[in-house]
Design a protein around this nucleic acid. Sequence first.
DNA 1: GTGGTCTAGACCACA
DNA 2: GTGGTCTAGACCACA
Lengths: 90, 90, 90, 90
Amino acid sequence: MSTLIYVADELAYPIDWDPTEYRYVQIANHIEKQIQDGVLTEGAALPAVPALAEEYGVARMTIKRAVEILVERGLVTVLRGRGTFVRRRG
Amino acid sequence: MSTLIYVADELAYPIDWDPTEYRYVQIANHIEKQIQDGVLTEGAALPAVPALAEEYGVARMTIKRAVEILVERGLVTVLRGRGTFVRRRG
Amino acid sequence: MSTLIYVADELAYPIDWDPTEYRYVQIANHIEKQIQDGVLTEGAALPAVPALAEEYGVARMTIKRAVEILVERGLVTVLRGRGTFVRRRG
Amino acid sequence: MSTLIYVADELAYPIDWDPTEYRYVQIANHIEKQIQDGVLTEGAALPAVPALAEEYGVARMTIKRAVEILVERGLVTVLRGRGTFVRRRG
DNA sequence: GTGGTCTAGACCACA
DNA sequence: GTGGTCTAGACCACA
């Protein structure tokens, strides 16, 4: 059995760094915005951690922190070994 | 990919305190002099903040202020999590 | 105003590494045991992060993860810029 | 304190697959041969797991199994988060 | 081939 | 002088 899922290939919006805010918070907000706007739809997989790290220009650990925030907000579900998936629109 | 860089281990010159000038300005000038004289060459990393604080006998916040001045002067670039690097000679 | 607090200087118990369990979980459990046994009493400050990192032989980030667990368990409170303090016995 | 170490960039010898022997055993033997011949010297870091996986054309799990064998033979030491290092010649 | 843990050590924010 | 963030890149666990 296999499931076809949408995987985002690149950032839908540019991200402007606000030096007064932590990067992982900015990244979490940026991804949340894409979920709210329907760029990332329910059930869609986020790009893989290394891809996100490269797109946002940060280390993998920073992406992990951002994803933790999205999990706390109930926006995504992490399936170990499979990927990170959108749960619902914000 | 990795790059070998020169890291200064200690002060190249002694520093004399002028009580009429802020220490962070003096430290900025002192480091600028080392860049101008080629003691710290383009691409070189400055010593870490705690090391500079100890060598100059000041708090780390004072070093941070001095580095901000050097950034404003376009002499160094701060790369978060990596270090502070010489951009060009003054 | 100042407050006298007890600061632990070294590990009260040895810690045996169980390679099947994450180190930050082991460290959290190990510190919890010291709180339960009264080695670390209410209001006491934990050793500083660098000290704990050295005692447990891990990186600072691993200590941070262990402390996050202790915070979730309601055992300690982190006061940014001041230290980490025992809230209550387990 | 830091130490400069030698890191192997590619295979020193070609490897011929013997279909009657498990690949992870072959890979362990192949690496052991390089240690015995001094291609990988004491203290040297093995190439990273993904690099070895690509060079041998196997999954990373297979490399992990080969490294386990080398550990059992006392030839290498795995330091989590740092790398895998040659302990002594075979 | 994903996400998770971990290192060593950098600068940052707070008190 | 504390804890926090962040890097670059290692091995680990899971599917």
